[in-house]
Computed example of a mutant assay.
Amino acid sequence: MADDEITVPANYTAGLFDISGRVAVVTGAGSGLGAAIAIGYAQLGVTVVLADINAAGMAATLATITEQGGKAVAAELDVTKRDRCFDLARKVKADHGSVDILVNSAGSAFRSPAEEFPEDKFNFILDLNLKGTYFCCQAFGNAMLAQGRGSIINLASIGSFNAYPWASAYLASKGGVLQMTKALALEWRDRGVRVNGIGPTLMESPLTKAAASRSSITADFIKARMLRPRLGLPRELIGTAVFLASDASELVTGHIVMCDDGYLTA
């Protein structure tokens, strides 16, 4: 290796976290974590494609981005429909010239003891959280592979690693997201596409509130094991999402970056 390859050139760090001018697709952008990441990207000059089945939520996210001077478009998408994921990937590539970043944030949860877990709810959660993530990785991953570059960021969970009660389907789906992320990273790294994930702690979000309305057993279990007695805020994931989308994480692939406030250390 030549000496100039192991030195740090002048101004090398200036552009490491610069993602301005890139195109990002964010699923689940109509609320919660997806909305926060989409708004954060737009603040940095990214053109954001908001993808969700929640039209009203997308409109609210779009309005915020527009008010703040950012660029975004809304695209209705049911991530459980593989053909629609591919259709949107082709449209984004045609309209914007590239697909640089994909954030898979669309997901759901349902609380029930395992022995009573309803089949329809189990299927819904696995379809949305796991299959939906996989279909989007396939669709937008193909576009990234064709252009020889891209960063995919999947929303995992503390539940990808640790179990908690009344969440068996959710845990199964997020464990699958972990292994899927590793598998795709392994297959695609030498073709220019990195695949990583973010593992949040229990968050303040509409999903958390909706799940808690059925039972507090899951949240109570998690809260009792937190190092600090507070939930994470959606905006606290933006920095990690920027890092994983940027050139600063060039050597990072196949990992879940935990934003768990130390939960897994306990």
Rank of each mutant, 00 (worst) to 15 (best):
E115H: 06
E116D: 13
F117S: 01
F117T: 00
P118S: 05
E119R: 09
E119P: 00
F124V: 10
L126M: 15
L128W: 11
L128S: 07
L130G: 04
L130I: 08
L130M: 09
K131D: 11
K131F: 12
T133M: 02
T133F: 00
Y134Q: 02
Q138T: 09
F140Y: 07
G141N: 06
G141R: 08
L145C: 08
A146V: 12
Q147I: 07
Q147V: 06
G148R: 10
R149S: 15
R149T: 14
S151V: 11
I152V: 11
I153F: 00
N154H: 05
L155R: 05
L155C: 06
S157M: 04
I158P: 01
I158A: 04
G159R: 10
G159L: 14
A163T: 12
P165C: 05
W166N: 14
A167H: 14
S168R: 04
S168V: 14
A169T: 10
A169C: 07
Y170W: 03
L171W: 00
L171V: 15
K174G: 03
K174I: 09
K174M: 06
G175P: 01
V177A: 09
L178E: 06
M180A: 07
K182I: 10
A183N: 14
L184Y: 10
A185I: 07
A185K: 06
L186A: 14
E187V: 05
W188L: 07
R189V: 14
R189G: 11
R189N: 12
D190N: 13
R191E: 12
R191A: 13
G192H: 14
G192I: 09
N196E: 03
G197H: 05
I198H: 04
G199D: 03
P200M: 11
L202F: 06
E204I: 12
S205M: 05
S205T: 15
T208F: 01
T208M: 09
K209P: 02
A210R: 13
A211M: 11
A212K: 06
S213R: 13
R214W: 09
R214E: 12
R214L: 13
S215W: 01
I217E: 09
T218S: 12
A219H: 10
A219D: 13
D220H: 07
F221A: 09
F221W: 14
I222Q: 00
A224G: 02
R225D: 08
R225G: 08
L227P: 03
L227M: 10
R228H: 08
R228W: 01
P229C: 04
P229S: 08
R230P: 04
L231Q: 14
G232K: 04
G232A: 09
L233I: 10
P234I: 07
P234M: 06
G239H: 02
T240D: 00
A241M: 07
F243K: 02
A245S: 12
A245H: 01
S246L: 06
